[in-house]
Design a protein around this nucleic acid. Structure first.
Lengths: 336, 336
DNA sequence: CTGTTAGCGCGTTCAT
DNA sequence: ATGAACGCGCTAACAG
C-alpha cells in the first residue's frame, strides 16, 4: 500500500552530515577537496561517506553549479563501423576528462532533427559534438542559441564556441577517379546508394560534373543500402556488361561487386575494377583486397571531444578550434 | 573580467511565467499536460514558451521528481560489430520511450569496473542495462544496493528489480564441434584469443573438458586479438601443419585462418575447416563463406531496454523479467 | 482554474 | 575551520 515511497532512499549529503557530526557545508567541502578543512574532520566525514555508501547526486550538483558534466553526442543511426569507431573514440576521451556521454541518435529526417535538438537542449549537456551529414547549418546555429558549445564534424563551420573537424574526403577520391577518367574512359559506374549522406553525394556530384566537363561518361547504378541487394543487382548487371570501373560508397558494397564479378566469370582487376570510398576491415580481409580510402575515425572522435573539453574549460586559451584530417588512399588489388 | 557569468542565461520557468502573466505553477501544468488549465491560458503560456525559446531543464525536473529519464548502458570497449548493433538497438528503443541514454564504457579490469559503477550511481540514471562479460555478480549486486533497476545481458541472474537476458551460445557451438569430434578426431584447434570475455572462454573450457572425457585432443592456439596477427601466425602454422579443424571466436578471425590456409596452398574446407563462434557480415561476404553462429544483437538490445522500461513503470505487471535467445547455426562453406 | 509554498540534493557566500 | 541561509529550476500538494 505504501510502495510509492519505497525507493525514496538515496543517501543525501544531509545524512552524511548528521552521521559525521558536521554541517552539510563541511561535507560539501571534503567532497570537493576544498582547503580549510581539518584533517581530522576530513577523516570523520570520509568515514561517514564510506559507511553510508554515499554518492553525490550529479543531478543536484549540476543544478547547483549549472554544469552537468555531461556531453551530448549526435550521430546518425547506422551500423557502419566507422561511426561506431568514432563513437568509441569520443566516449573514451570523455571518460578520461570526467564527462558522461549521452547519445542522441538522428534519423535522416528534418522533423526528427528538431526533436533530437529539443532533447539535447533539455538534457542540459555542457557541450556536444555533432556528426550528422544531414543536419543543416541553420539547425546547428539554432543549437548555438542555447549557448551549448559545439564541435561539428564534417561541416566547415566556425564561431564563438563552435569548433569543427573537417574531413577531406572529396578531393582524394576525385583525384583517383579522375586519374582513371583522364584516358577518355566511358565505363565508369558509381553505385548510387540511397541515404549515404551528404559527403558521399557530394563526391558523386563532383564526379558527374567533372565527367560532363571532360566528355567522360559516368553511369549511376541506384541501389538500396544492402550487401545482398547490391550483390544480386550486380550479378544481373554482369550478364550484360562484361567490365567496368566501379566506385562504391563503402567497402562492404565493393565486396559485393567483386564477388558478383568473379562469380560471373570476370577477372578483378583485369576486367572489372572496384574502388571503395570508405574503407574498413573488409578492404584487407577480402580477396582480392579492396582499394579504398580510410580515415582513423577513432582519432577523429577523440580529437573532437578533446577540443570540446578545451572549449568547456579554458575557452580562451585555444589555439585552434578547427582540425583537418585527410582521407588516405590505400591502393590494393581491385584497381590497376 | 566578468566572463564567469556570461553563460548564465538559460531561460527559466520564471521568465515564462512572468511574460505569460501567470504563476510558475500554471506554466508547469501546461508543460506537463496537466488538466485543469483553460485553453486560453494554455495558449498564452505556450506562446510565451515559444517566444522565449524555453526548454525545461531535465536536471531540475529530475531533481524535483527523482527521475532523470536517463538510462545507463554499460558495455565493454570493443569495436566489435555485435556490440554496436546491440547498442543501436538499445538507444533506438530508449528514444522511443523517451529516455536519454548515457553510455558507460568498461575496460576489462576490476578497478575500472568500480569506477564505472561509481559514476553510474552518481549520474542518477533511472535504470541501467549491463552487458559485460567481465563483471562479477557481486559487482552487479552492489549496484542493486542503490536501487537502480537493472537488466543484465549474458548473466543468468534474477531479483527484485533485476531482469536478465540469457544468450544461449555455449550449447549450440559445442554441439557442432562435438559432432566433428565424435569420429575420434584429434586435429581440432581452438584459437584462444586474449580478452574475448567469459562467454568465449566458457565455450573453450567446455570443449576442453569434453575432449578430455572423450579422448579427443584439442590444441589451443594463443593469439592477440588482431586479424593481422592471427593471419601471420596461421601462415606460419600452415608451413608445418597441413590441415585441421579450427574454431575461432569471431568470423573476422576465421577469415584470417581461411586466407592463410588458401594462400598456403590448402583447400577449404577439404583440408582445413573453419568455424566461427560469433558471426557477422564477414561470414557471408567472404569466399568461401564462413560457417558461424549468429544472434540478432540489435534485437537483444531492444528487448533489454523494453523490459527495463517496464520495470521502471508498472514494475508489478511484468510477466517475465527474463528472456532467452539462442544462437543460430549457419552452416556455410568452410565446414563440411 | 490558478497562485503559494515547500522541498528535491547540493554549492556557495557570508558570518562566526 | 565551521555553520546558517539562500539559490539552482522545477514539481507537487495545499489553498483559495
Amino acid at each position: 500500500m505504501e510502495n510509492k515511497k519505497m525507493f525514496k532512499d538515496r543517501v543525501t549529503i544531509y545524512e552524511v552530515a548528521k552521521v559525521a557530526g558536521f554541517s552539510l557545508a563541511t561535507v560539501s567541502r571534503v567532497i570537493n577537496n576544498h582547503p580549510n578543512v581539518t584533517e581530522k574532520t576530513r577523516q570523520a566525514v570520509n568515514d561517514a561517506i564510506k559507511r553510508l555508501g554515499y554518492k553525490p547526486s550529479a543531478l543536484a550538483q549540476g543544478l547547483a553549479n549549472s554544469r552537468s558534466t555531461n556531453i551530448g553526442i549526435m550521430i546518425p543511426s547506422t551500423g557502419y563501423s566507422y561511426v561506431s569507431n568514432m563513437l568509441d573514440g569520443m566516449i573514451d576521451i570523455a571518460k578520461i576528462y570526467g564527462y558522461i556521454t549521452s547519445i542522441f541518435i538522428t534519423k535522416r529526417t528534418k522533423e526528427d532533427a528538431a526533436q533530437v535538438i529539443e532533447s539535447l537542449i533539455k538534457s542540459h549537456v555542457d557541450g556536444a559534438v555533432i556528426y550528422d551529414d544531414e543536419l543543416g547549418t541553420d539547425e546547428i546555429r539554432s543549437i548555438q542559441n542555447y549557448h551549448v558549445p559545439l564541435i561539428v564534424i564534417g561541416h566547415d563551420m566556425s564561431g564563438d564556441s563552435l569548433g569543427s573537424i573537417i574531413i577531406e574526403y572529396k578531393d582524394p577520391v576525385m583525384d583517383v577517379v579522375k586519374e582513371y577518367l583522364r584516358h577518355g574512359k566511358n565505363d565508369c559506374y558509381i553505385l548510387d546508394i540511397v541515404n549515404q549522406g551528404k559527403m558521399v553525394e557530394e563526391i558523386r556530384d563532383g564526379l558527374l560534373d567533372y565527367a560532363e566537363a571532360n566528355n567522360n561518361k559516368i553511369t549511376l547504378l541506384r541501389y538500396n543500402d544492402s550487401y545482398g541487394i547490391v550483390y544480386a543487382g550486380m550479378k544481373e548487371f554482369f550478364k550484360e556488361h562484361r567490365g567496368g570501373y566501379f566506385v562504391t560508397p563503402r567497402d562492404s558494397l565493393a565486396a559485393a561487386v567483386v564477388n558478383a564479378a568473379k562469380e560471373s566469370g570476370l577477372r578483378v582487376p583485369e576486367d572489372v575494377q572496384v574502388l571503395a570510398e570508405i574503407g574498413s576491415k573488409y578492404s584487407y580481409i577480402m580477396r582480392p583486397q579492396i582499394s579504398s580510402f580510410s580515415i582513423d575515425m577513432f582519432k577523429v572522435g577523440s580529437i573532437a571531444v578533446r577540443i570540446l573539453t578545451k572549449l568547456l574549460n579554458d575557452s580562451s586559451s585555444i589555439k585552434d578550434k578547427t582540425f583537418k584530417i585527410r582521407a588516405k588512399y590505400n591502393k590494393r588489388e581491385t584497381t590497376i
